[in-house]
Design a protein around this nucleic acid. Structure first.
Length: 515
RNA sequence: GCCCCGGUGGUGUAGUUCGGCCAAGCAUUGUACCCUCUCGAGGUACAGACCCGGGUUCAAAUCCCGACCGGGGCACCA
């Protein structure tokens, strides 16, 4: 069995080097052996289309490839499948590079398919010369209808010479978009419609972000993919989206290219969070979210900003593995992994959401020192002065749940008894120092000039069960945190006891990672 | 419509290749308790599943057939 550990990626950004889990404590995730894999001879690839931002789904597929690569001591390609100039943009290339890098995935080789256009032209020409492809001038809707009916069009029987003439015309920009395409001479009666003379090359006269207007004839995915896998020497294809392989197998056969072991697994979906650009884009455009890096988004930038660790995504991926079964992960599965990684490395700071101003009559002046972490002493302590007859801020939800006369404890401070409560205020009285486990414990912040106003964003699912947009996917929680919050850097992740883990996004602004 | 691929507790998976060791394991979630100056982490216990219907067999989650449901493909997208 295959098992890999990645303690090196355990680190929250902006946080100084982090304590790693002991090896014995690390989960032992494993993946099944890769069929036909030979140590030192495995070549894998990550084939993103730079037409959108990288998502957690790409990251998970990346982890699977990277894990096998490491295990078999193979090589990994990062190959940008950018053969549709109308869809690709420069920023997206960087999104993938940065994202994979953040994930701790290393690739030995990188290329863009645009680098091999001449080679692809060569293969296309060869198919034409061999009489296995032809030029077609039928409009798209006619192609579709004839394909459905299983009827070949007149272009199918054109001479090779004529086909080559058109091909040259396409390359020399004699024809405009849509006038001519190159189609495979497949099998117009095959039950699998994807084999009924699919398109292979078409004209797209549009500037490409990498090569400008150098090319106007572009290959269709299946052709490009088959040729590229061969050029890269790929031995195993492990990819997420499911689709028909029949055409690719057919193309390899016609071009005399070796077979490749293909393992397909279903997409990584998360409950209430679409990963398709089709559903994500309108959210951005209609300002339902603040951008592609909104903490509710499944983009790498989004989950990262929320406080999900790269190591958590890695462990989670190996934990759930890959299957052909359609699945929708509950976010709690990922959160559980993340929480266990975060717990030992997150300092504790008091934060009081929706505060109530509570005066504690008869309370003595104190200067308490509270450890930043319950077990990790290296985090040290913070010192909080509390005046006599203190006025403290405490969560309103706790006050609401209590009635006058109830005894409770202010964590690490002293006990108190509720005397009365009103709108946003409460009166209590000092009730001793004895630490009792049966008392409800409240976090608190002195209501003095040292307190820090904080706005915490609480991300929730973007879509509801019924598929409609969740109007309450982002809750803004206001409150106050203790003074030491001011010492935190953006990017640091801490735990607000009795509230949850949060990542500092900006001064005075945090994002709830998860409870 | 046609063609592929799948269906194990609320969620995610293990087991299916070579039927018996599976009256189904693990994680998550929920509940209770223990521990702990957190509603976190850790510990213990409990709750909860083999899509349905036939068939083969001494024996089926596992093999066969048929429904049903889900995903993908049938683009001049990848």
């Amino acid at each position: 069995m295959l098992e890999e550990r990645y303690p090196e990626a355990l680190e929250a950004e902006g946080q100084k080097k982090v304590e790693r889990k002991k090896v014995e404590e690390t989960r032992e995730e494993q993946l099944p052996p890769l069929q036909g894999a030979v140590e030192g001879k495995v070549v894998l690839r990550l084939p993103p289309e730079p037409s959108g931002f990288m998502t957690i789904g790409h990251a998970m597929a990346g982890v699977i490839n990277d894990t096998y690569k490491r295990f078999y001591k193979g090589e990994l390609w990062l190959r940008f499948e950018d053969t549709n100039p109308k869809k690709v943009k420069k920023v997206y290339y960087d999104s993938f590079r940065d994202g994979y890098k953040w994930m701790g995935i290393h690739w030995e080789h990188e290329k863009s398919v645009t680098a091999d256009m001449e080679v692809l032209y060569g293969y296309a020409r060869r198919l034409i010369e061999q009489g296995q492809a032809y030029a077609c001038a039928c409009p798209a809707d006619r192609v579709k209808k004839l394909r459905f009916d299983g009827v070949p069009c007149e272009h199918r029987e054109q001479s090779v010479a004529r086909n080559l003439e058109v091909w040259e015309g396409m390359l020399s920009r004699k024809f405009k978009e849509g006038e001519w395409v190159i189609r495979l001479k497949g099998d117009m009666s095959n039950l699998d419609l994807s084999l009924r003379d699919p398109n292979l090359m078409r004209v797209i006269d549009y500037p490409h972000p990498l090569v400008g207007d150098q090319y106007v004839v572009w290959p269709i995915y299946d052709l490009e993919n088959v040729v590229e896998d061969h050029i890269c020497g790929v031995t195993h294809v492990l990819r997420s989206s499911e689709f028909h392989l029949a055409l690719q197998i057919k193309l390899r056969e016609l071009l005399g290219l070796p077979e490749v072991f293909v393992e397909q697994f279903s997409r990584f979906n998360f409950k209430g969070t679409p990963v398709s650009k089709r559903l994500l884009r309108p959210l951005v455009e209609e300002k339902m979210v603040t951008g592609w890096d909104d903490p509710r988004m499944p983009t790498i930038e989004g989950v990262r900003r929320r406080g999900i660790l790269a190591e958590a995504i890695r462990q989670f991926t190996l934990l759930v593995g890959y299957t052909k079964t359609e699945h929708t992960f509950d976010w709690s599965l990922l959160f559980a992994v993340n929480r266990k990684l975060l717990d030992p490395i997150s300092r504790r700071l008091f934060f009081v959401p929706d505060p109530v101003r509570m005066r504690v009559k008869g309370s003595p002046a104190r200067a308490v020192s509270i450890p930043f972490h319950p077990t990790q002493e290296k985090f040290g302590k913070r010192h909080i002065p509390v005046a006599a007859d203190a006025t403290l801020l405490v969560p309103s939800s706790d006050v609401t749940a209590m009635k006058p006369g109830d005894l409770f404890r202010l964590m690490d401070l002293y006990n108190a008894r509720l005397v009365s409560k009103g709108e946003g205020v409460a009166e209590a009285e000092f009730a001793g120092d004895e630490l009792r486990y049966d008392l409800k414990k409240l976090q608190w912040v002195p209501d003095d000039s040292e307190k820090k106003a904080v706005e915490v964003l609480e991300p929730h699912e973007l879509y509801k069960e019924d598929g409609s947009v969740n109007p309450d996917s982002l809750v803004v929680r206001n409150g106050f945190a203790e003074a030491s919050l001011g010492t935190l850097q953006a990017g640091e992740i801490v735990q607000f006891p009795r509230y949850g883990f949060v990542r500092v996004d900006a001064p005075g602004k945090c994002i709830l990672t998860h409870p």
